[in-house]
Amino acid sequence: MFAAISLLIFICMAMLMVRLFAGPTLYDRVLALNVFGSCTVLLIGTVGFLFGRPDFLDIALLYALINFVGTIAVLKFFRYRRLGDAADDTESIMPPEPDSEEA
């Protein structure tokens, strides 16, 4: 049961990796990375139950947090083109560059 679920999640990850490798736009890649992180969380959870160690769930929770922070950082980079003190100097806020604008 858990083995089948793990296999299915891994197939999902393989498909996401195809999207990451090929992904025509940057947004495809951001979305693929985010869902890949979610799949990692799920896989750690199921692997924990598969090998009889459900305490892996704590680690899965930590991964979910890291994934969230990472995605926020990437999106902030998209919005402000920088990661430092974007809130202070608003004149540096530029529209996204054309090649990443259109999906």
């Binding site: 992180g37 930590l62 991964y63 890291i66 994934n67 922070v69 990472g70 950082a73 990437v74 980079f77 083109r81 920088r82 990661l83 430092g84």
Partner: peptide, 18 residues
């Protein structure tokens, strides 16, 4: 996961911005 997927991605994005 914290360093490789979290912090270093953010730092590399900052480097790309510069």
């Amino acid at each position: 996961a914290a360093v490789g997927a979290g912090i270093s991605s953010v730092l590399m994005l900052g480097t790309i911005a510069l």
